[in-house]
Structures are given as structure tokens and as C-alpha cells.
């Protein structure tokens, strides 16, 4: 489904990685490893189409993602370092706007339910700016529960979360993979999956090998 060929990304005057290639199929999870500054975030941002690679192609269903932006965007969900939520809006408002832009038709009841599942009960109507880091993260992660996209790209999804939230997120990810979803994530934690396949890709080595 997702294929990466001969990818090279240059930031500044430095090549972060080159000749990178791998592929990901349904029901697979790719765990990106590497020390700080090895280009994990850059790779994720390249995969979702935000960064233009200086060489190589990322293709989805056999077609370059840069030639099918809107179609690819419909099937992909990217959660980056930044939560992508507005501090002056409430959790419900944020989630409503995000799901509309994602092209989803979600009722308000569903929004409230999802936020409750994320452990934000009683905080739905507060401006996100007053919430804690972990709670902001949860608002942003609530999109996973609404998402219909098969491909999830998650950059350090467990940051700022407490243990309970990490466990919950683990099961959400595991469920998604079991239902023939695809996940690429960066994290320092171990990712537990009951079924499905966990691939690992280590960046920042002398030679970037295939998985």
C-alpha cells in the first residue's frame, strides 16, 4: 500500500537520510527508531506530504502521494509534535472543526462520547488553553477514535500521557492494526501488539537498510 523508494531528504545543507526504501501493507505497524536528530519526524512529515523529498518517491496504492494530495489525505491521518488544536476553542469545538475538515460527518453526541473515552469527561467545554499538556494531547488523539483513514502517522503519540492513557492508546493502535489498518509511529516505548506485525526501522545509521 505505502511504498517508499530511494528517498532522500535534505535539511539545511545536510542530508538526513538517503536511499531509504521500505513498504507497508495492511495490518502492519512500523516502529521508527533512532536517536534525536536522526530524522524520524522529518521522515513522518515527508510521508504525509508536508515535506518535499529532494529525491525519491512516496507512493500510496502505486501512485505518488504528491499527485493525489486530496485522495491520499482522506486515507491518512497525521498527528505531529504540535497538537493542531486552538487554545481559545473548547475540546468539542476543536474536535468538531478537525473532523469536518477531515471530511467526516460526526454528530455532537459522538464527539462528546469520544472525548469521554479519552478521559476528558468534564473538560469538554473548557477552552483547551487551560488544560494540561497531557489533556491537550488527548484532545488531539481523540481524532484517532473518529478516524476512518487506514494509514496513521503518529509522531511521539505517547508524550505527556500518563500510564492509563498510554495503555489505552496502545489498545487503540493495536485494534486499528488488527482491523487491517496501518500505523507508522515514533516512540521510545515498546509497542505491544497482540496480532499483526511490528516492523522496525532504525534511522541514523551509516547505511539505511530496508526493513
Amino acid at each position: 500500500m505505502l511504498e517508499v523508494n530511494n528517498l532522500e531528504v535534505i535539511r539545511g545543507d545536510r542530508s538526513l537520510f538517503s536511499e531509504l526504501g521500505f513498504s507497508l501493507n495492511t495490518g502492519e505497524l512500523l516502529h521508527l527508531l533512532g536517536h534525536n536528530g536522526s530524522g524520524k519526524t522529518t521522515l513522518l512529515r515527508t510521508l504525509c506530504g508536508l515535506i518535499k523529498p529532494s529525491q525519491g518517491v512516496v507512493s500510496w496504492k502505486g501512485m505518488n502521494i504528491r499527485r493525489q494530495r486530496d485522495e491520499f489525505a482522506l486515507e491518512m491521518l497525521f498527528l505531529g509534535h504540535l497538537n493542531g488544536i486552538k487554545a481559545d476553542l473548547t475540546a468539542v469545538e476543536n474536535l468538531r472543526i478537525l473532523s469536518r475538515l477531515d471530511g467526516l460527518d460526526v454528530s455532537d453526541d459522538e464527539l462528546w462520547q469520544v472525548l469521554e473515552k479519552m478521559g476528558l469527561y468534564g473538560h469538554e467545554d473548557l477552552a483547551v488553553g487551560v488544560l494540561s499538556q497531557g489533556q491537550k494531547r488527548r484532545v488531539s488523539l481523540a481524532r484517532l477514535l473518529l478516524s476512518k483513514s487506514p494509514l496513521w502517522l503518529l509522531d511521539e503519540p505517547f508524550t505527556a500521557l500518563d500510564k492509563a492513557a498510554v495503555d489505552f492508546l496502545q489498545t487503540v493502535i493495536a485494534e486499528h492494526v488488527e482491523n487491517d489498518g496501518m500505523v507508522i509511529l515514533t516512540t521510545h516505548q515498546d509497542v505491544g501488539l497482540t496480532t499483526g506485525e511490528v516492523k522496525q526501522l532504525r534511522l541514523g545509521w551509516k547505511k539505511d537498510g530496508d526493513v
Binding site: L50, A73, I85, L98
Partner: peptide, 19 residues
């Protein structure tokens, strides 16, 4: 740009020019 909603706008299935 600072809170990340901009990058999300650029990768939604909506035409970016409309947004």
C-alpha cells in the same frame, strides 16, 4: 502555524486553496 492547525489544514482532504 505555531499551534499546528496550519499543517493539519494542508493535509486535509479539502482543497488548500479553498481553506
Amino acid at each position: 502555524y505555531a499551534d499546528g492547525t496550519l499543517e493539519q489544514m494542508l493535509i486535509t482532504p479539502q482543497p488548500a486553496t479553498i481553506l
